[in-house]
Amino acid sequence: MLHFPPSSWIARWLPALTTLVIWALAAAVVAYWVLQFAGVSGPPTQAPTALRLTLAEPAQNHLQRALGTVSAAPELALAADAGARFVLSGVVASSSGRGSALIAVDGQAPKAFKAGQAVAEGVVLHSLAPRQARLSATARGPVTLTLDMPPLSPP
């Protein structure tokens, strides 16, 4: 066994530093295996989303336009550039269609939006489903755009 003189700094700090290094390695190993079992691998990537347009019934649009209650311009503007503007990153939804969604608008970082909240000018998060967000021009209007998360890959 090694014996160091009591006045040496090595005698005081070597056991403490050795213990610190061993515990740091143990924590790193535990964190690695927890992440492996949780399914997290590598840096997060922005998943592509599928885009599905659902325009309102043509007869309903014509009737509303004839009565002067709703103009069709916001819906057409929403449908025209929606694929480039909105990216769905995540959804937390209940069976009632309430919840929140992570949506990136115009290439910015994703933000959380609740159902009924304005996502962009003239665009409202209408309702949610598992792995799906539905957008419309108004909170009570017809769904004009559906954003889908990509299907899960098999393990």
Rank of each mutant, 00 (worst) to 15 (best):
L135Y: 06
L76W: 10
D106G: 05
L67K: 11
L51S: 03
T49N: 09
A80Y: 11
S41Y: 11
F37R: 14
S89G: 06
A93Y: 12
E57H: 14
V29I: 15
A72K: 04
L102S: 06
R140Q: 15
T146V: 15
V143I: 15
G39C: 03
S136E: 00
A72F: 11
A47D: 08
A82T: 06
L14E: 13
K114S: 12
L102P: 00
W13T: 10
S95R: 12
A133G: 02
Q117A: 15
S8K: 04
S94Y: 10
S7T: 13
A80G: 05
A11M: 08
A77K: 10
A93L: 04
L76V: 07
L14N: 07
R52K: 13
G83S: 07
G116D: 07
P48H: 13
R85Y: 08
R52T: 12
P15A: 08
P130K: 10
L76I: 09
D81C: 04
R85M: 03
A79M: 07
L147E: 00
R85H: 05
Q36V: 11
F37C: 02
Q132L: 00
V34H: 11
S127N: 07
G122W: 09
L135D: 00
G99K: 02
E75G: 12
I22K: 11
S100E: 04
T146D: 01
L125D: 00
Q117E: 15
A77N: 08
L102F: 12
A50R: 06
A115Y: 02
Q64C: 03
R134T: 02
A56H: 03
D106F: 14
A24W: 14
T146L: 02
A50Q: 04
G42R: 10
A72D: 14
T138Y: 12
A129L: 03
G107F: 04
T146I: 14
G83K: 07
R52D: 02
R140L: 11
L53T: 06
A47F: 05
A84Q: 15
L14I: 05
S136Q: 01
E121D: 15
R85L: 02
T144N: 10
W9E: 13
R131D: 01
R65C: 00
T19E: 08
W13N: 05
A80N: 09
R52C: 01
A24H: 13
K114H: 14
Q46S: 12
G107N: 04
A73F: 05
A24Y: 12
L128P: 01
V119Y: 06
V143H: 07
H126K: 15
P142G: 01
L53K: 05
